[in-house]
Write a protein that binds this DNA or RNA. Structure first.
Ligand code: FES
Ligand code: FES
Lengths: 136, 136
DNA sequence: CGAAACTTATACTATAATAGTATCAGTTGC
DNA sequence: GCAACTGATACTATTATAGTATAAGTTTCG
């Protein structure tokens, strides 16, 4: 079971860097600091920018900056952005076994589990991670 | 996010079939009934047999049978059998950022989430699924 | 202007995990 | 002996994730 992919991982790290720096940083610098492949990070940054988590500026003085307060960026959101929502493996027994998909208990349980996971990730923000970091 | 893989899915379906039938069934029959590729199912059955969830018998009268009571087979166990335990994506900030891995809060949160998920899956058994099935 | 340092956008390759196939050997019962 | 089964294992295919490459446009500064 893998909860977070590299993209999510890298995205969070980049956001943390930006939160620490409190200003504009080029993708190159972030990549170097976090040992993230540059082009890979650039794609991630674009996704983050399109979703409104960061702003970017082109040109020599350009770079990336946080667009939201660290406490307003939840891990759950980043996770969904890069890993989408629950994929039901054809819903385990769809139609064939479970007659009415709408009320199927297992289906509900799976959805419930996803919600629980997301709820837990919602309580983790860039700000809370930052606090952790400094405490360590 | 995909919680269950095909292997887990198929394994559970096969176990359900066996629980319904309450006797010995050949892999071929199960595969046909559930539209599972035969050789794939056979490998799954072997894993289940090695883990003690089913017994098998060779020969023309052979086949597969449940080795445990349906209520004693938890989805969590099947899930772990086929999908292993939590994989930490290099633990998100290992060493580099999180100084002391032992106390790292995020790490704890991830482990906590895994435990929650497993706990929820532990409450789902072959018996409870069977009940669902009949209720529908 | 033109070079340096940056982002945008997209197309591509590589690696790994999952899913599925093929086969040969051995067992059981008629 | 042959039909119907499992054991064991090796192989291929498909998909998702991870990572690379590159052409084109932007901004600043000398
Ligand atoms: S309908 Fe999807 S698990 Fe029952
Ligand atoms: S040590 Fe793994 S997330 Fe902190």
């Amino acid at each position: 079971m893998k909860l977070l992919t590299k993209k999510t991982d890298y995205a969070v790290r980049a956001l943390l860097r930006l939160a620490q720096h409190d200003g504009r940083l080029s993708a190159r610098r972030i990549a170097a600091a976090e040992h993230i492949p540059l082009q890979f990070l650039r794609a991630i940054v674009q996704t983050l920018a399109q979703a409104g988590y960061v702003t970017t500026r082109e040109g020599v003085t350009g770079g990336v900056a946080l667009a939201r307060a660290p406490r307003a960026i939840r891990l759950a959101d980043i996770l969904q952005l890069f890993q989408g929502t629950l994929d039901m493996t054809e819903c385990l027994f769809r139609k064939k076994v479970c007659r009415n998909r709408a009320t199927c208990v297992l289906r509900h349980r799976l959805l419930d589990i996803e919600h629980t996971v997301l709820a837990k990730f919602q309580r983790i923000t860039i700000a809370s991670l930052l606090k952790d970091l400094n405490a360590a």
